[in-house]
C-alpha cells in the first residue's frame, strides 16, 4: 500500500455531508451556490436540470445539489431526496406574489419521508433589493413556527452581496454535525 492509497483512504473517511438546495424558480439557488463557491454570478441563467458542487468548508466535504425550481421541474425534486443531510430552502424575499406558492411547496416537502431526518435552513434571499420582506415577515408568512418535524432556522441573506451566506451554512453544518458525527 503506497502513500497515495493511504491518502485516498483517509480522504474517504473524511466527514461528508449532502445538502439539497430547493425553492421556487428565481429564488436565487444557483446564485447562492456560485457565490459560495466564489464563481462569477453575472451570467447565471434559469437552471434546466441541476448543478452539483463539492466543496470543502471547515473540514467538511459538502456535496451541494442545486435543482431547478421551475414548475415543470418540481416533480423531479423527489429524485434528489435520498440521503440528504440538510435541506436549504431558498426564498425570494421580494416575490410577495408567490409567497403562498412557496409556503405550499415547502410544506409538501416537509411531509416527505425521505427528508425526515434532514435539517432545514431557510434563506430569506435578496435582502439587497429595496422591496424585500424581512426575515420575520417571511417566517410568519411561511408559518415556520408550526414546523415541529425538523430542526430549522431562517437566515436573511443576499446572494448578490454574499451577506450572511456563511453564517447560514455554518449553522446548518453545526446542526448536522451535532446529529450525525456524535459517534466520533
Amino acid at each position: 500500500m503506497g502513500l497515495l492509497t493511504i491518502l485516498k483512504k483517509m480522504k474517504q473517511k473524511e466527514r461528508e455531508m449532502r445538502l439539497l438546495m430547493l425553492g421556487l424558480d428565481n429564488a436565487g439557488k444557483t446564485t447562492i451556490l456560485k457565490k459560495f463557491n466564489g464563481e462569477d454570478i453575472s451570467t447565471i441563467s434559469p437552471t434546466l436540470g441541476f448543478n452539483i458542487q463539492t466543496l470543502e468548508h471547515r473540514g467538511f466535504k459538502l456535496n451541494m445539489w442545486d435543482v431547478g425550481g421551475q414548475k415543470s421541474l418540481r416533480s423531479y425534486w423527489r429524485n434528489y431526496f435520498e440521503s440528504t443531510d440538510g435541506l436549504v430552502w431558498v426564498v425570494d424575499s421580494a416575490d410577495r406574489l408567490r409567497l403562498q406558492d412557496c409556503k405550499q411547496e415547502l410544506s409538501t416537502l416537509l411531509l416527505e419521508e425521505r427528508l425526515a431526518g434532514a435539517t432545514l435552513l431557510v434563506f430569506a434571499n435578496k435582502q439587497d433589493l429595496p422591496g424585500a420582506l424581512s426575515k420575520e415577515a417571511i417566517r410568519e408568512e411561511l408559518a415556520l413556527d408550526d414546523i415541529k418535524s425538523h430542526h430549522w432556522c431562517i437566515i436573511d441573506c443576499s446572494a448578490v452581496t454574499g451577506e450572511n451566506l456563511l453564517s447560514g451554512v455554518d449553522w446548518l453544518l453545526d446542526d448536522i454535525a451535532a446529529r450525525i458525527f456524535t459517534a466520533d
Binding site: R96, L97, L99, Q100, P130, G131, L133
Partner: peptide
C-alpha cells in the same frame, strides 16, 4: 382575488 389580496397584505407601496 389572489393578486389583489396579496398585494394588499404585502405592502402595496412596494408592488
Amino acid at each position: 382575488p389572489a393578486d389583489l389580496g396579496e398585494v394588499v397584505r404585502g405592502s402595496s407601496s412596494k408592488l
